[in-house]
């Protein structure tokens, strides 16, 4: 039932949004000529695409969280220990997010000197986070918490793996942007500089989002 409420709310929100922004109440047969407002979304396709993708990822993680919650009500649920290393990893991911945000501000100011170190730091911190997650897995395995030991363990592995995979996908875009930056932007055409700016901006959005997902997942893991 809680799923239905969530999705009804989501659907309702989309509906309201469409009504407010996109004038679903207009009588299109009465209007002729080019209408300037209410046309295409005035944003780069990559940005629109990212937001749509985030909606999909929200659905995926949201459903996992709901199933996690439902499954944890059953009597055979044995909560996992909460490895202290997870706090460290969380810190790393927060720092990565901060670094990307600074990179974003720098690139908006066209401040290349501010961009490079922050971009680099974000990448290193993210790799460190992923490494830290692997370390947590090793700790758990050596503690006898295998995938099939208990659904609580299985969920932990699935959710961290899924989250890690999404971050790894983000790192690919980060790597592409960094590559262009390090080759030097000075001699590049304007469009490419704009491309880098867009990439860095979208990376920061994506990182913030995955940080949020992680914080929710972490909260979920701690709460059971």
């Amino acid at each position: 039932m809680n799923i239905s409420v969530l999705f009804a709310a989501l659907g309702g929100a989309i509906l309201v949004w469409l009504f407010l922004l996109q004038r679903l109440k207009t009588k299109p047969w009465l209007e002729q000529g080019v209408i300037e407002e209410g046309g295409a979304v005035n944003a780069a396709p990559q940005r629109v695409g990212l937001w749509v993708f985030l909606a999909v990822v929200t659905s995926l993680f949201g459903l996992f969280a709901i199933v996690y919650n439902m499954r944890s009500q059953f009597p055979d649920w044995r909560p996992m220990p909460d490895p202290g290393l997870l706090w460290v990893n969380t810190g790393l991911l927060i720092l990565a997010s901060v670094a990307l945000q600074r990179a974003r501000t720098a690139v908006a100011r066209e401040d290349l000197d501010g961009l490079k170190p922050n971009l680099m730091a974000a990448g290193i911190l993210t790799f460190a986070f992923l490494g830290g997650q692997l370390l947590v897995w090793r700790q758990l395995i050596s503690g006898g918490y295998y995938l099939a030991t208990n659904p609580a363990d299985a969920f932990f592995y699935i959710l961290t793996a899924l989250h890690g995979l999404h971050l790894a996908g983000g790192l690919w875009f980060w790597a592409r942007a960094s590559n262009t930056v390090w080759k030097g932007l000075e001699s590049r055409p304007v469009t490419e500089v704009a491309g880098v700016r867009l990439s860095v901006t979208l990376c920061s959005v994506y990182w913030h989002y995955l940080l949020l997902v992680w914080l929710i997942l972490f909260g979920l893991l701690l709460s059971t």
């Binding site: 469409l18 996109q22 004038r23 679903l24 207009t26 299109p28 000529g33 080019v34 209408i35 209410g38 046309g39 295409a40 979304v41 944003a43 396709p45 629109v48 695409g49 749509v52 993708f53 999909v56």
Partner: peptide
């Protein structure tokens, strides 16, 4: 499907030609 779907939704939202409002 997700790769295709991102395209369809983004194209409808972002790439409509001049004058093509949602209600058209």
């Amino acid at each position: 499907f997700t790769m295709g779907g991102l395209n369809y939704v983004t194209t409808v939202l972002q790439a409509r030609t001049r004058g093509m409002t949602l209600m058209r």
